[in-house]
Amino acid sequence: MFGWIYIALCSLLVMFAILMVSARRPISSAVFLVLTLIGIGVLYLMMNAPLVATLQWLVYAGAIMVLFVFVVMLFQLRELNPTSISTHPGRFALLLLLGGGFLGLCLKGVIVGLQEQPVIMMGQTLVTGEASLKDFSLLLFSKHVFAFELLSVVLLATLVGAILLARRKQRVS
């Protein structure tokens, strides 16, 4: 059953991605990107990676997209002249196909789930959440410690770069 729900979710996410690329307003595009990233987090959940899923929600959809939406709102970007992709005649048909595909595949998944033996339903996984969390953390700090420390230097460079880009000409006292 989860296989069908997974494919259904993929169809929904492709629909959101196409909506994002072909949206008329920049803010709609940003909102669809947020929905796509949240959906990718749900895909990670279905692949038994809850830590990666919640970190995806926290960082990508919760911090990076906040920055994007800030910029869109600060610039008060207007609706652009409709580009060829947002007025393409096949766009609505493709979106309808993907949305209908999502609903149809969900329905198929529910039907299959109601018919099959309730064995996998309540939380039997090959790797439990806690074991993989511990392994991930141990690996991060033993095998990949150099990359980890390098990451802090990269973050420092980002900080300095952002300040240099946006520095005011006069000091504010």
């Binding site: 809850p50 830590l51 899923a53 919640t54 970190l55 929600w57 926290l58 959809a61 919760g62 911090a63 906040v66 439990t128 959440g129 806690e130 969390l133």
Partner: peptide, 14 residues
Amino acid sequence: VPVGLLYLLAIGSF
């Protein structure tokens, strides 16, 4: 769920 705390923090970010 085993990551309840991070889920809560993510919802707060949204």
